[in-house]
């Protein structure tokens, strides 16, 4: 609103109408590469996807219009609902692990050390490509030949099917990805902590507040905008879980890790039900949009208590 009023007042002055128009054109030129890319690789495929979601298309046949049949099928598809359920389970697990571990590490760095080497080391797992880290962990966690089970057995414990038993598979996948993402989350949170003015801590220390209390009373509340940002980003990011599942469990055992992205992929490229897969994908877009909106609202992310 404010900007709109401002612009109006300035145009009313009519001092520099020519230059203004020139600015617009230059701006457009600078924006063009992004806009063209956005249109070609996002808008156009999304619109096509929306159309395909109304068709029966197996990639090789001509897409035939079926109206809302795909969506009707989706509502009654137990595998779709199951995929949403296991995805939600995964998101809660992995985001929870990332944020708890990230907060802990960031707080330690913030209050104890500012070593650049340590900070760089933290992001190393994040730099490992997802597929590589999934493969690595698949071997480490293998039920019979893996290093972790070797350790368990040598300690006199039973070996565990980390990625092959229905109860453990999803937590294992969540842990693998949390391992990869924690370093990045930590850096974001650490950057957020650096924004908190030191004098607040000094004042708190003068009043005799302990480190733990300082963390809960000062760091956490003042970190809220960053936390909200991290939460939203990592939530959307983890909804898109695909590679770790494709590499380690392929959706099994018995649908325990058949997350929605993997399900869409299977419907599209294993069963060649492109129309149905598009309908699934669009539903996911809707769900994600809604989730983000609710989250931003709940966390009042745009407002900081420091302001």
């Amino acid at each position: 609103m404010t900007t709109a009023t401002l612009t109006k007042t300035e145009t009313a002055g009519a001092a520099l109408p020519r230059r203004r128009r020139g600015d617009g054109r230059v701006a457009l030129a600078f924006l063009a590469p992004v806009l063209i890319g956005f249109a070609a690789f996002y808008v156009y495929p999304a619109v096509r996807g929306a159309w395909y979601s109304l068709t029966d298309w197996n990639l090789l046949s001509e897409p035939g219009f079926v109206g809302l049949d795909n969506y009707a099928e989706l509502v009654g598809d137990p595998l779709f609902w199951n995929s949403l359920k296991v995805t939600a389970y995964y998101v809660v697990l992995t985001v929870g692990m990332q944020i708890v571990a990230g907060l802990g590490l960031a707080a330690l760095m913030h209050r104890l050390t500012r070593s650049l080497v340590l900070r760089s080391l933290l992001v190393v797992p994040w730099l490992v490509p997802n597929v590589t880290s999934a493969l690595l962990w698949m071997w480490l966690l293998d039920a019979n030949l893996g290093f972790f089970n070797h350790l368990l057995v040598s300690l006199g414990l039973d070996n565990q099917g980390f990625l092959t038993s229905p109860g453990l598979a999803m937590p294992s996948v969540a842990a693998i990805n949390a391992w990869g993402a924690t370093g990045y989350t930590t850096l974001l949170l650490y950057a957020g902590m650096l924004l908190v003015p030191r004098q607040i801590y000094e004042a708190a220390a003068l009043d005799g507040t302990g480190e733990v209390r300082q963390f809960f009373r000062i760091t956490l509340p003042l970190l809220r905008p960053i936390l909200a940002f991290v939460l939203v980003v990592s939530l959307i990011d983890s909804f898109q879980l695909f590679d770790a599942v494709a590499v380690t469990t392929k959706g099994g055992p018995v649908d325990a890790t058949r997350v929605v992205y993997f399900y869409i992929y299977e419907e599209a490229f294993t069963h060649f039900k492109m129309g149905y897969a598009s309908a699934l994908a669009l539903s996911l877009v809707l769900i994600l949009g809604l989730l983000t909106f609710v989250q931003m609202r709940l966390l009042r992310a745009s407002r900081s208590d420091l302001a």
Partner: peptide, 13 residues
């Protein structure tokens, strides 16, 4: 081996 504790690397491995 119980199915849930079977290596994912295949029988030949």
């Amino acid at each position: 081996t119980p199915y849930d504790k079977t290596s994912s690397l295949g029988p030949d491995t």
